[in-house]
Nucleic acid binder design. Structure first.
Length: 270
DNA sequence: AAATTCTCCTGAAGGC
DNA sequence: TGCCTTCAGGAGAATT
């Protein structure tokens, strides 16, 4: 499912194809995403030039001179660059057409978003309260721990909270906690500063490595050219319940934390 | 304020 | 073989 590395992979993949291009058409086949696709989208976008393609958290931002298109891939969404007039499948809900290609959103579970905003995207209600980017200098162990002091939820929930740090979803939460030797269920206010510094570093490390591999494909995710991401084969604990820990060989455990399945080694993670 | 539960949705997988 | 149930999950909204 798209987490930060998958969205970043998509951002880098589509940017060269649509930056500087003029939107020639907007096709909405099914507007019923998490929120309805706005009706005025075609009027707002047609004839506009895509000035830049950016990412903030798991949102993709397609900037024009008069506003920004916000895209979110939910948990099953993917964007592809296709030749014009490519036949659409059942879950291909939205196209942005250009003279020489189309940007197409496919999202079987329709948890994604397509929204339009006139104001700067940073001021949008869905974006303005987000925490720091994990790969920026604004995110480090010290600030990490300061936020944790006043909370007591399991650390796995804590690092998946978008107000603490953005982009860490279920897969990379399990992976970074494993790399850091921290048990996912440990209360977030019972972790030393030194361990938070290591955790912050490991989050940066695992996200960077996943981006380098084009993200993780479990089922739906594909890059803009249709290829899967190749980080799944490097996952150390996620989805590997009852398989040996790559560190110590004891069997990987699975438990539900905050309604999410979590994977860990109870020998390596305390 | 913080924590928990609910909600959207479809496809895969398991049970009988 | 086929139908029914359960589960997966991003993240805002609603509730405790």
């Amino acid at each position: 499912m798209p987490e930060l590395p998958e969205v970043e992979t998509t951002c880098r993949g589509i940017a060269p194809h649509i930056t500087g291009k003029t939107v020639t058409g907007v096709v909405v086949r099914n507007a019923a995403l998490r929120q309805p696709i706005p009706k005025e989208l075609s009027r707002e976008l047609k004839g506009k030039v895509i000035r830049a393609v950016k990412r903030r958290a798991k949102y993709l931002l397609l900037e024009t001179d008069t506003g920004t298109l916000l895209l979110h891939l939910g948990m099953s969404g993917s964007l592809r660059i296709l030749p014009v007039e490519s036949p659409a499948g059942i879950h291909d809900h939205f196209d942005l057409q250009f003279a020489d290609c189309s940007l197409r959103l496919r999202d079987p579970r329709r948890f994604g978003l397509v929204l339009w905003t006139h104001a700067p995207a940073a001021e949008h209600p869905l974006i303005c309260r987000l925490g720091p980017e994990p790969l920026s200098d604004a995110f480090d162990g010290d600030r990490f721990q300061q936020q944790a002091i006043k909370r007591r939820i399991p650390v796995k929930n804590f690092i998946m909270d978008g107000k603490v740090v953005v982009g860490v979803g279920n897969i990379y939460a399990s992976e970074s906690l494993f790399l850091s030797g921290i048990h996912p269920h440990r209360p977030c206010n019972r972790i030393s500063l030194a361990r938070y510094r290591r955790l912050a570093d490991h989050i940066k490390q695992v996200l960077t490595a996943a981006i380098a591999r084009g993200g993780t494909t479990l089922r739906d995710f594909q890059q803009e050219d249709g290829k899967p991401g190749y980080f799944a084969q490097e996952l150390k604990v996620y989805g590997r319940e009852s398989k040996p820990c790559p560190n110590c060989g004891s069997l990987i455990k699975q438990m539900r934390i905050g309604q999410r399945s979590s994977f860990y080694c109870d020998r390596c993670q305390r």
